[in-house]
Design a protein around this nucleic acid. Structure first.
Lengths: 163, 163
DNA sequence: ACAAATAAGTCAACATGGCTGACATAAAAT
DNA sequence: ATTTTATGTCAGCCATGTTGACTTATTTGT
């Protein structure tokens, strides 16, 4: 009885379930980035700078090509923000030892400091969500996200060695 | 035995777990938006148009204020894309019946068609991820995302009546 | 009835961060 | 020795965010 709106229509439910997923992703991402954006603005930086700082921090000594492969933007776009970060002393470049064409990227102490500050905010937000959702939910969260990620990038998150 | 790297150090694991969450969110969102962006480009539209079309499609008859409250952008920013969509016949506006200052927004048939096309791609991507992750994982996924969303917007996703 | 608040829109100027295309340099690979 | 690769640079375009100032129509509150 009751339940006028969904009378044995699994298709409708499924459709709505997916739409909710789309929306939640939008809202979560919106709020996920909001705080760090404020902090960045204080430094005259934007979200693009954050991404560069974050990934260089995670992969010290990475090449420009590798970074481009992660960000999926053009080298001209990257060049703008990376140049600023290098000139202002947040990131250093040094030639690769085997291939001297490469410019291996690392954070300076100043860069690390900013990275920590920025990521801490996001970590806190995620930590809160993880804690209130519980360990099983976190497993599910990761499983679903993994399935949304382009095949080639999934290996980054599997228990094997990341590089 | 073995396990040289994580010797009873739950803090390290926790830290890394959170970082992985941050990264997965970045990659998933990157890939989540990529396909629709291509389609939008064929219409001369961008992601901003998509968001407007999406939320108007979900909430026919919504006001401009409500839309602004969801998108968290200024009315000037919205005005640009909304104006284009109205002028090109994707969205209609009609005065509110009780408050005639309002311009209630709805998709036209043309707008619905585009909305369906765009959302279908994203729905397919999420559907695939949901299917491969399983029902329990989906529950967890939603639970965690919910926890990341600004308190005020969470009610949109709770089983009660959405408005 | 009138003043104040609200919903919506507009104009102008500016910043960020994508993009393309063309071209340059140094080092590695063939 | 030639070609390919890694990186960088200049110039210009576009989409989409921002602030600030101001307008119009309508509703609300005293």
């Amino acid at each position: 009885m009751a339940d006028i709106k969904s009378p044995a229509n699994p298709l409708f439910l499924r459709e709505d379930e997916l739409r909710q997923g789309i929306e939640m992703l939008f809202f979560a991402y919106r709020d996920f980035t909001a705080k760090a954006d404020q902090t960045l603005a204080q430094f005259g930086f934007g979200r693009a700078h954050h991404r560069v700082i974050y990934f260089v921090g995670r992969n010290p000594g990475m090449t420009v090509s590798e970074l481009l492969g992660i960000l999926h933007i053009t080298k001209q776009s990257l060049s703008r923000v990376l140049g600023q970060l290098v000139r202002q002393g947040f990131i250093t470049q040094k030639p690769g030892s085997t291939d001297r064409r490469q410019r291996l990227l690392s954070l300076t102490e100043k860069g690390s400091e900013l990275e920590r500050k920025l990521t801490e905010e996001q970590r806190a937000l995620i930590a809160r969500a993880y804690r209130s959702a519980g360990a099983d939910a976190v497993d599910g969260f990761r499983k679903v996200l993994l399935g949304m990620i382009e095949e080639g990038d999934r290996r980054r998150f599997r228990p094997s060695l990341p590089r």
